[in-house]
């Protein structure tokens, strides 16, 4: 390899149309400040028009370009080649069905957003008048670090527990649910939590921090899940004490 060249090892195939997974090597002369996405575009234009990958915005806003760079999930458009060395392995995100080459099917990820009811549900009084949640309030302070998610799926790919239990809701859906559970405008709060507190929900998380390490937005889904766990435990303790005070056996 000449100076300024990088050898890319790219996982090809794996989709239903082309099921045989294999690795293909491309050598590319790179320029300073080039990103992984720039390299993919250059390879597709100059060497192999059949190479499959996905992107939209090119500036870290849409989250569609996520893939694995040297075994770690990253955004192709925001990962500079400079720091990666002369050999770079590109693979599709783990934990997602492969559509073709580097592009994955996001369906399971968004299905879990639905299962976690990851949208605000204000009803009655809350929706009739503009709510006031001051920026310096505790409520806002809890929500703020968790709202910038662009649903790229990187945390979902990084999570070993999603790999272990395909029914696990995963970091992104639980992170979104946490912002809603904390939100006073949302009126299904307690029910929302009950829906999440099972072995395919918050209790599946083992605090490994893989999602926290991987999220390019600096979000910590782990912290969100711990917040949900604390609330679930507090709710459980309250109903336990309540049932004792009412003179009934807990759980009866």
């Amino acid at each position: 390899m000449a100076a300024g060249e990088i050898r890319f090892r790219v996982r090809r195939g794996g989709g239903a149309d082309d099921p045989e997974a294999r690795y293909q090597t491309y050598t590319l002369r790179v320029r300073p400040r080039m990103t992984v996405l720039d390299a993919l575009v250059a390879i597709q234009n100059g060497q192999d028009p059949s190479l499959g990958y996905r992107y939209s915005c090119r500036v870290g806003m849409c989250g569609t370009c996520a893939l694995q760079v040297n075994g770690r999930p990253r955004w192709a458009c925001r990962t500079r080649l400079q720091a990666l060395g002369e050999r770079v392995t590109l693979e599709p995100l783990t934990n997602f069905p492969v559509l073709r080459d580097l592009a994955v099917d996001m369906t399971p990820f968004f299905d879990k957003m639905k299962r976690a009811r990851a949208w605000a549900e204000p009803t009655g009084a809350a929706s009739s008048e503009p709510a006031r949640i001051p920026p310096e309030s505790r409520e806002r302070g809890r929500i703020e670090p968790h709202i910038e998610c662009i649903t790229c799926g990187i945390c979902y790919s990084a999570c070993s527990m999603v790999g272990h239990d395909p029914a696990f809701l995963g970091p992104a859906a639980l992170n979104r649910a946490y912002t809603l559970v904390c939100d006073s405008r949302d009126e299904i709060g307690p029910n929302r939590l009950a829906n999440l507190a099972d072995e395919h929900g918050i209790w599946r998380c083992h605090s490994q921090f893989n999602c926290t390490e991987a999220c390019p937005k600096g979000i910590s889904p782990t912290a969100a899940i711990q917040g949900l766990k604390r609330r679930a435990v507090a709710d459980g303790a309250k109903s336990f004490v309540g049932s004792i005070l009412r003179g009934r056996a807990p759980g009866a």
Partner: peptide, 14 residues
């Protein structure tokens, strides 16, 4: 989905 293949295994199991 019908048109997709199996996921790449999670790195922990690889």
């Amino acid at each position: 989905m019908e048109s997709s293949g199996p996921p790449v295994p999670s790195s922990v199991w690889n």
